[in-house]
Amino acid sequence: MLERIVKAYNEAVFETDKEAAFEVVEAALAGGLTAEDVVFKVVIPAVEEMMSNITKDPDANLAQHFMTAQIAAEVTEKMLLKFQQPPEIIGKVVMGTAHGDLHSLGKRIVMGCLKALMVDVVDLGVNVPAERFVDVAQAENAQVIAISAMMVHTATGENGASKVRRILHERGLEERIKLVVGGAPYRFDDGLYQTVGADAWAADGVNAGRIIVDLIRGIKKS
């Protein structure tokens, strides 16, 4: 039965058909599957497959990535409410858009993927001052600060990622908290993330999920 559900769910996700995906999930629950099984055996493998496919599938477009990430996030969110006990969280990320930047969509896609991958996300919203990123990451014991910037002046500006890097350095947090960035300017210049002092960057919202999970695992190991 599980195989059939996985196939039907993956098909719905491939078609970016949210209503169909929820129908599959509802039918699976009615058929006796637990919410935990839905997340760990259906949704997460689908997200992981999407991540590995994203660079291989030349026909998948941005709109489809947005929609699939949204489906994963919504299904996971709904299933979490039905969990017998709180799920095991693999780590925590503090996320927001750079100071001066109000473009929230990229952040939203990353958050959707992270939630589906059992990463706790503290969303600081848009136009976030550098100090706040670090203050909250410290208070929340987060492993990663993720900053989205969609404009050249917010990606490279002195109040964005570079300032977060400086504060991390001043407070001696660089081994405990990693800094990742994303957004259009970093795609146009793939060395830009280093210029602004980030540890990593991702070309799209779905891959950002994977990179952040890798960073969390790296910190937890050390």
Binding site: T16, D17, K18, A63, F66, M67, Q70, L102, H103, S104, L105, R108, V126
Partner: peptide
């Protein structure tokens, strides 16, 4: 209305992509 400050704009946007 500045859409950047509307919390559910992004969600509406994704829902209208189909």
């Amino acid at each position: 209305i500045n859409l950047s400050l509307i919390a559910d704009y992004d969600e509406a946007y994704i829902n209208h992509l189909r």
